[in-house]
């Protein structure tokens, strides 16, 4: 695993970083633009809380915690795996065939293609939100809870990575469907930026059991805040994020293999 995936991943990603560093001004400006893109979402959340004290029982700082967890997980996944959404383009232009004849996993090549460190800019607003929330909230910090915070962020990131890959796999079958995957990835992140409780039972259940978005930020936030779920869902769900992450990654891997096996070159 380390030898076959992580080492080539790091090497390819680093090669792209060095390439982009050749245009430092462009790199800085585009990083700032990425920062702004997620910054406006945070601003919208702050504006909303200018009118109300709480949404479905969640105060500003609690909502910032949810936003920060989602943003951190989702944009880290975007940095690591976001490039896979261009699979359809690679299939259409034939460059995916080139990846298949190289002695590195095609998924690693796809994920590192045009790897761009400027996407880290998207992480800044959510990191600020997370730090603000963790500082302001009265969380009972035990060593277990502190360690769990790391586990939860890693699990959330893994869930988001799996969602990116699952979205990309659709393009093995319908090459034009890049935007359709965006409904799952960007749409999913938009949904989980706010506490799921505000959407009511139906949507929250779908976002827990159908597409497990709840395990990116909502259930982890309930765990950190040590509060009951206002929707009354099973209280042990908040410990399930790591399990869900492993299962979803396995599903994504299976989907990738199926897609790869199904793949026939465009023939040109």
């Amino acid at each position: 695993m380390v030898e076959r995936a992580l080492v080539p991943y790091a090497r390819l990603a680093w090669a792209w970083c060095r390439a982009l560093a050749q245009y430092p001004v462009s790199l800085v400006l585009l990083t700032l633009a990425q920062l702004g893109a997620t910054g406006v979402e945070l601003l919208a959340l702050l504006f909303v809380f200018g009118h109300v004290d709480a949404l479905a029982g969640f105060t500003l700082h609690e909502a910032l915690l949810v936003y920060g967890l989602t943003g951190t997980a989702f944009w880290l996944a975007d940095l690591l795996m976001g490039s896979v959404e261009r699979l359809g383009e690679h299939i259409r232009t034939g460059s995916f065939d080139t990846m298949l004849v190289r002695p590195v996993s095609p998924l690693v090549q796809l994920a590192t293609d045009e790897f761009s460190p400027r996407r880290l800019g998207k992480n800044v607003p959510s990191a600020v939100a997370l730090a603000t929330a963790l500082g302001a909230l009265d969380i009972d910090w035990t060593p277990g809870r502190a360690a769990m915070l790391v586990v939860l962020v890693v699990s959330g990131t893994a869930i988001c990575c799996a969602l990116w890959v699952l979205g990309a796999c659709v393009q093995f079958f319908v090459t034009e469907a890049r935007e359709l995957a965006n409904a799952l990835t960007y749409g999913g992140s938009a949904l989980s930026e706010y506490p799921l409780a505000i959407y009511g039972h139906g949507v929250a259940r779908a976002a827990t059991f159908l597409v497990p978005l709840a395990f990116i930020s909502y259930q982890p936030a309930l765990y950190l805040l040590d509060r009951p779920d206002p929707l009354g869902m099973w209280p042990h769900l908040r410990y399930a994020s790591p399990v869900v992450a492993v299962l979803l990654c396995a599903l994504a891997a299976a989907a990738w293999r199926t897609g790869l096996r199904h793949y026939r070159s465009t023939g040109s």
Binding site: V174, E176, A177, R178, E179, L180, N182, A183, Y186, G187
Partner: peptide, 12 residues
């Protein structure tokens, strides 16, 4: 010409 893309954008 891009029918699937159009359909996808309606979904998004």
């Amino acid at each position: 010409t891009y029918r699937v893309a159009t359909l996808s954008s309606i979904v998004v």
